[in-house]
């Protein structure tokens, strides 16, 4: 291949690439301006684990069967119960959210759908100890720290 031919071929290829890039520039933008606008998560999204309160009974649906504690591959669920028979109730239901790998095995084995995923992912924290979610936190299914806005706070509509 002669030098001139190479130059022509190179220029043609460069033109094709740049033309494509310019055409893409005119297409619809894909960027999501995150803190201001948020993408909807799917209803199956593995966000935060929670024990939602049943509005009929005013309590969560946990029947203390220890299945989630047993299946958890990370051993991050800790359940303790006291009392016997019908009096039995939870004295401890903690999930170490920093150890959790969000695999969903606990949700799968739960016979009463007491433990579920909530599509909430904004859970970063300054202190690792706050990632230990107690029974109350899991019932509330809310983050322990307020959601950050950073320097984009003023741009919020």
């Amino acid at each position: 291949m002669s030098a001139a031919e190479r130059v022509i071929r190179g220029a043609a290829a460069l033109g094709t690439g740049l033309g494509l890039t310019f055409r893409t520039m005119l297409r619809r933008k894909v960027t999501v301006r995150y803190p201001v606008e948020k993408l909807p998560t799917s209803h199956r999204f593995h966000g935060l684990l929670s024990l939602p309160i049943d509005p009929e009974t005013g309590k969560d649906r946990c029947i203390i069967c220890f299945q989630c504690e047993r299946i958890c591959p990370d051993r991050c669920i800790h359940i303790e119960a006291e009392g016997k028979g019908k009096e039995r109730q939870l004295s401890r239901f903690d999930i170490e959210m920093d150890k959790c790998c969000y695999c969903g095995l606990c949700v799968e084995v739960c016979p009463t759908e007491a433990i579920v995923f909530v599509p909430h992912y904004e859970t970063s924290t300054y202190n690792r100890a706050r990632l230990l979610y107690s029974h109350d936190d899991l019932n509330r299914a809310a983050p322990k720290e307020p959601i950050a806005t950073g320097i984009v706070a003023r741009r919020r509509p």
Binding site: T41, S42, R44, H46, C101, Y102, G104, L105, F117
Partner: peptide
């Protein structure tokens, strides 16, 4: 990954 998320619930790790 949106397609994955609708079915498996995860983006990278699915189980």
């Amino acid at each position: 990954l949106d397609l994955f998320e609708q079915v498996t619930g995860g983006r990278l790790h699915h189980v």
